[in-house]
C-alpha cells in the first residue's frame, strides 16, 4: 500500500456550461480507505463534481488522476474509452441514487450480481452462483430471492442489490450519489450501516455525494462543503459539522432538524 500517492487526485477541476458554473477549481486528494463526503444543497455542483471525477462528464479544465492496482497513475481524462470502461467495470464502482439506474432489469438478482464476474471472464456457473449467494448474504438479502427479478424487490432491497452488484469485483473506489435518497428512514439506517461495514471490511475508498449531513456523520471521514459550484469548506467530518467556519456551512448545520 503506497503511502505517498493518493488513490485519486483532482486539481482545479472546473465544469462550465457557457457562463453557468457547474463546478469551479475543485481540488482534492483521496487516500486508500478514506471516505469523502461532498455535501451541499441542490444546485451546489456536487453531482457535477462527482460526474467529473468518475469519468462520466468531461471537465472544462483540470486534471483527475487515479492510481491503479499496480501503482501506476493514470490521467482519467486522457484515458481511451475502452480503458475508461474497463476501469469502471473493475476498479471503480458506482452506486446510483435510483437503484434502477444501477441494476439490469429483466434479469435475476443472481445474474445481476454475477454479471461483472462474467464480464471479466468467469465461466463456471456453480462458482458464479456461489459468489452471488455470498454477496446476497453480505447485503442481507434473503438467499431465496436469488432467482427473483429486482423489479419485485422493495426499494431498500434494490439499493442493497445494487451495492452487491457493484462491489462484487472489489473495486477500490466507489462513487455514491445520494445512496439513501428516497428510502424510508429505517431502511436508510440499515443501508448506511451496511455501507459503513463494507467500506471498513473491504478497505474501500468512497466519495459520497449527499445533501444529508447525518449520512456524512456516519460514513465519511472527511467532508467537502459545496455551494454555487465551489468548495467553501473542507476538513474532517466531525470538525466541519461541530465547528463550521464558513457562514454557509454554519447555516447548513444549524438547519438540520433535531428529532
Amino acid at each position: 500500500m503506497a503511502a505517498d500517492v493518493p488513490l485519486l487526485r483532482a486539481r482545479d477541476v472546473s465544469k462550465l456550461y457557457g457562463a453557468r458554473v457547474g463546478c469551479r477549481d475543485v481540488g482534492l486528494d483521496l487516500w486508500p480507505g478514506e471516505v469523502l463526503g461532498i455535501v451541499g444543497e441542490s444546485g451546489s455542483g456536487k453531482t457535477t463534481l462527482l460526474g467529473c471525477l468518475s469519468g462520466r462528464l468531461v471537465p472544462t479544465s483540470g486534471s483527475v488522476e487515479f492510481m491503479l492496482r499496480d501503482g501506476t497513475v493514470v490521467d482519467v481524462l486522457q484515458l481511451s474509452e475502452p480503458a475508461l470502461r474497463k476501469l469502471a467495470r473493475t476498479d471503480w464502482g458506482v452506486v446510483h441514487q435510483n437503484p434502477r439506474d444501477g441494476l439490469r432489469a429483466g434479469v435475476t438478482a443472481g445474474a445481476n450480481v454475477g454479471e461483472r464476474l462474467m464480464a471479466l471472464g468467469a465461466r463456471h456457473y456453480g462458482r458464479i452462483r456461489a459468489e452471488a449467494l455470498d454477496w446476497l448474504d453480505r447485503v442481507e438479502i434473503d438467499r431465496g430471492r436469488i432467482d427473483d427479478w429486482p423489479e419485485t424487490f422493495s426499494s431498500g432491497m434494490q439499493q442493497r442489490l445494487q451495492i452487491a452488484r457493484t462491489l462484487v469485483t472489489r473495486p477500490r473506489l466507489v462513487f455514491m450519489d445520494e445512496p439513501t435518497g428516497g428510502l424510508d428512514v429505517s431502511v436508510q439506517a440499515r443501508l448506511l450501516d451496511l455501507v459503513r461495514g463494507l467500506t471498513a471490511d473491504l478497505g474501500l475508498s468512497a466519495i459520497i455525494v449527499t445533501h444529508d449531513l447525518a449520512v456524512t456523520r456516519l460514513l465519511a471521514h472527511r467532508l467537502l462543503v459545496m455551494r454555487g459550484g465551489e468548495v467553501v469548506e473542507s476538513g474532517l467530518t466531525d470538525q466541519v459539522l461541530d465547528d463550521p467556519q464558513h457562514p454557509y456551512t454554519q447555516l447548513l448545520v444549524s438547519s438540520v432538524l433535531q428529532p
Partner: peptide, 29 residues
C-alpha cells in the same frame, strides 16, 4: 439485452461479451 445499436456496436468493438453469458446463466437458472 441492449436495444441501442450504438451501445451494441461499442460492446462488439470493446469485446464486452460478458452479458451473453448472463443469458446462458438465466437459462440454467
Amino acid at each position: 439485452l441492449e436495444p441501442r445499436e450504438i451501445e451494441t456496436r461499442k460492446m462488439h468493438a470493446l469485446e464486452e461479451y460478458g452479458v451473453m453469458h448472463v443469458r446462458l446463466y438465466e437459462d440454467i437458472t
